[in-house]
Design a protein around this nucleic acid. Structure first.
Lengths: 338, 338
DNA sequence: TCAAAAGTGTTATCCTTACACCCATGT
DNA sequence: ACATGGGTGTAAGGATAACACTTTTGA
């Protein structure tokens, strides 16, 4: 025990996983870190002036990217030493080092959702922010077209190689994690476990960030790494994985999918949005029956002709029913094929 | 924007909601705050020496209460100004005020589970810690014997009185929250929304903490307040509500109930444990069928004779299957009666 | 006329919920 | 024998998952 407390000052950084769906692809808002790596919009929390985390977050996301957040929810607070120091100072100021020692940086991650909105592109082009498909960061998470080839071609072999170099006492546990997280040997894919999959890859040195953080020890061939998703600054890809996992889970019991939809939408658009987030393909009619059962949407009797085929009816979200019976959200039946 | 950052130092406090079930009652571990109020075991996070939040938490819970935590999970980070200053210094040291201004106190709440264990009582008696039934803090949350009388006798009338004094523009929204959160007018009880219920009562000035934090403005009769659950120091009852809600939700999709069970148990003990946490009564046979379907437990062929009636078979949790197919957890069908 | 996408009918299967009933022990 | 709690059989109703099929537009 020390007698003097807080010789090491604490800095709190806020990071936002801002998700939106553009052209059928789930994307996250990103900015460029000083070293040109992609980063989440982030900024420091100023204890003197910010009344709440959420207000601070909304303010600097608007400042950095030029638009306002709707739905916002806290994800997790990352405090471990040893993880790469987050760029909490990305916004403006640098972390204080009043006494000479480096500040301890804590980061609080947030999830935010933004509806698809065509007009929004212009706002963005004025800033350094851009929308990056989540599939670029997590290419193994998209099962909409069936099992992604990268799992069997790259991930499974690399993980098995790692396994064989492991401490034999840990081998069984690791083998079982590999099997279940990546749906090998007949195990079932669970789309919610995004974070655990990323952490397994990181642990196995298969995330570019791991090589960076560990000073390049036991680096796999660079060719393998580049196929395993675009890395991000600091621990931002971990925060992004946390956000995607949370969003996928929450879809099933809260109607938050509608925070990603424009005011009017067709049922196919709704289905494609769910699919792009959850990463699995859904059975059309069962999806519709489920939506109907929840009574969360209402047909407007108006048709959308820009579908490429037969015109589709437009629907709206019945926001009013949520107040009455905080409902189930959507149920994702599981996988349609394979 | 200031030029000088961190004039106001940040202190991080850690608080633990440690849940265990004793004699069929869900309890939380509590300690006595200096002003004699009940408080959660809490302590400061020392950025110079604590490598992770979780390690720091485990250490001071052991120091304060004398036993070790098993399952631990982060709940939420509370950072709003204006909420009552948490007792982050309960453990030992006082918050630093190097520059004269008060430190900004952030608190990180954790949920921890501890299996029922008879021998544990002795450890506790040596310390200032004790087990307090959650029903003392949230008397409206226990629906095992049907709808608690306190809802219709005390809560609903008091909330309606509050409603009538409200800004008319907010009235409709508030009325709907009251209805759905407390299952009035035929609305269905949702056992997970513990935090929202507590926050509604707090907002309406019906939690003793609200009177305290607001300097006693519009205090309802003291008799009403004392029926509305035992208050806690700082915002600890809010953290406790967060923990109970999270635990109730998580029961349904992760098999964490077994972190509350001893190594061997009967199915009735298991059912009573689920009931004490979720606060609802379950149908015996349906519960058993569900447990059977999950294949999470295994009969030992050994009988427990201390049941008061026919001896019951003892079961154990098959920890090994969790690794294989991170399973559903338990599904709480809803309410058996009413 | 054909491609493309919207939208519907039907069925087997499984899970949920709710009945009512029997079994083994201690007093 | 009877109270107490353990343990089981059956059946209706609803949700899920998977079939294949018709309809309406634009090119």
């Amino acid at each position: 025990m020390t007698t003097q407390v807080n010789q090491v000052p604490i800095t709190i950084g806020l990071s936002a996983v801002v998700v939106s769906v553009m052209d059928g692809e789930a994307c996250a808002l990103s900015v460029s870190a000083p070293d040109a790596a992609l980063a989440l919009p982030s900024g420091p929390f100023d204890p003197a002036h910010d009344r709440t985390f959420e207000l601070a977050l909304r303010a600097f996301v608007t400042a950095q990217t030029g638009f306002e957040l709707g739905f916002v929810e806290q994800l997790y607070t990352f405090g471990d030493k040893g993880r790469d120091a987050p760029l909490a100072d990305l916004g403006a100021r640098s972390p204080p080092t009043r006494t000479g020692e480096p500040a301890r940086i804590i980061s609080v991650g947030y999830l935010a959702l933004s509806p698809t909105l065509e007009a929004r592109g212009e706002t963005l082009s004025a800033s350094a922010a851009r929308w990056t498909p989540l599939g670029h960061h997590f290419p193994w998470e998209d099962w909409r077209e069936g099992r992604p080839a990268i799992i069997d071609e790259v991930i499974a072999p690399a993980l098995r190689r790692w396994l064989s170099q492991n401490d034999p006492r840990q081998r069984e546990g690791h083998a079982s994690r590999i099997r279940t997280l990546f749906a090998l040997d007949g195990a079932r894919w669970n789309e919610e476990r995004v974070l655990e999959r990323y952490e397994l890859l990181y642990e196995a040195g298969l995330a570019a960030e791991a090589a960076r953080d560990r000073g390049l020890s036991t680096l796999p061939e660079a060719a393998t790494l580049t196929r395993l998703g675009q890395p991000m600054a600091s621990d931002h890809r971990r925060i992004l994985a946390t956000g995607l996992g949370r969003l996928r889970g929450k879809l099933k019991y809260r109607p938050i999918i509608f925070d990603l939809m424009p005011p009017k939408f067709t049922l196919s658009q709704l289905q494609r949005t769910v699919e792009s987030i959850s990463g699995v393909a859904l059975h059309k009619q069962n999806f519709r029956r489920m939506i109907e059962r929840t009574e969360l949407v209402e047909g407007l009797g108006v048709m959308d002709a820009d579908t490429g085929g037969r015109p589709a009816e437009l629907f709206r979200f019945r926001r009013e029913v949520v107040a009455v019976r905080q409902p189930m959200g959507l149920s994702l039946p599981t996988l349609r094929e394979n």
